[in-house]
């Protein structure tokens, strides 16, 4: 990719996620927690996976080998909050940007015109379109999160790393007289990371050595999805299994070498 297309950001804080695939059981609790936390309405047709409203989904990976070598893995996929997002620069109306400290890619629903160009740009399918009018079963509307706005039909939305929780954490820090830009690791955790029963999802500031993600992201078992494209995701994955790490990217050259 040409240098002119890269947008370089420097942020003091770089919120990041490190997901340990070897610990993920594929239970889907993160998906449910995300849906409840972020006011994602139920899919009117749950079998229509192509119009799934979920911000976080779990992919099933297979090593495509027969028993007894057969192996599977589960890969939860939030928004990668790319360091060089493919989506933000294409939006015609500045509805999505990567301009805030922390590096979370924003999505402003009242600005979005629903052209879906960002969805065409994102190779991770992290962005979903609101195909339906949001409808909650009676009584469930009482459980909506007041810190997350509801979205109308016809706009694009995506995972925000539960950005509102960061806002809340900053307010708490200010009340205690602490520096809101230097939060404790436990002060701000997205719903998916909080709920994960096996502790597979780690979250924190990738620039802060006091946060565990700082160390985990530098592990020899860490990888990011589609690094070849130059998107520079802020979501890392961990696996001790070679075949899992290999499925994190497309490897044209390596295969060529192997065949020759």
């Amino acid at each position: 990719m040409s240098e002119s297309m890269r947008i370089h950001h420097h942020f003091e804080i770089r919120w990041g996620m490190v997901i340990d695939i070897d610990k993920c059981t594929g239970c889907g609790a993160c998906v449910v927690a995300c849906q409840a936390e972020n006011n994602i309405p139920p899919n009117p047709d749950p079998f229509d996976r192509m119009r799934d409203p979920h911000w976080l989904i779990v992919y099933k990976l297979s090593n495509h080998k027969k028993f007894p070598e057969h192996d599977t893995a589960y890969l939860p996929r939030p928004c990668m909050q790319c360091g060089n997002p493919s989506c933000a620069s294409v939006c015609p109306v500045i509805a999505t940007t990567k301009d805030e400290e922390g590096g979370i890619v924003s999505q402003i629903y009242p600005r979005c015109i629903g052209c879906r160009y960002c969805m065409a740009a994102c190779p991770y399918h992290s962005r979903v379109f609101n195909w339906f009018d949001p409808v909650w079963p009676e009584g469930m509307d009482k459980t909506l999160t007041p810190f997350v706005s509801t979205r109308p039909r016809g706009v694009v939305e995506k995972c925000t790393f539960c950005h509102h929780r960061w806002q809340i954490a900053k307010e708490e820090a200010r009340k205690r007289g602490e520096n809101p830009m230097h939060l404790d690791e436990q002060a701000y955790i997205p719903a998916c990371a909080e709920v994960c029963p096996t502790g597979a999802i780690h979250f924190g500031d990738l620039h802060n050595p006091e946060h565990i993600v700082h160390k985990l992201a530098r592990s020899p078992y860490a990888f990011r999805i589609l690094e070849n494209l130059g998107t520079e995701p802020q979501v890392y994955y961990l696996s001790r299994r070679d075949w899992v790490r290999k499925q994190g990217d497309n490897h044209f050259r390596q295969e060529e070498k192997k065949n020759s």
């Binding site: 620069s89 294409v90 979005c112 015109i113 629903g114 160009y117 109308p152 706009v155």
Partner: peptide, 18 residues
């Protein structure tokens, strides 16, 4: 487009990089 009534945003809030 999902929000036709917002079509004019293209002129009012243009992203010059797009």
């Amino acid at each position: 487009i999902g929000q036709p009534l917002r079509a004019w945003f293209g002129y009012w809030h243009p992203n010059v990089h797009s």
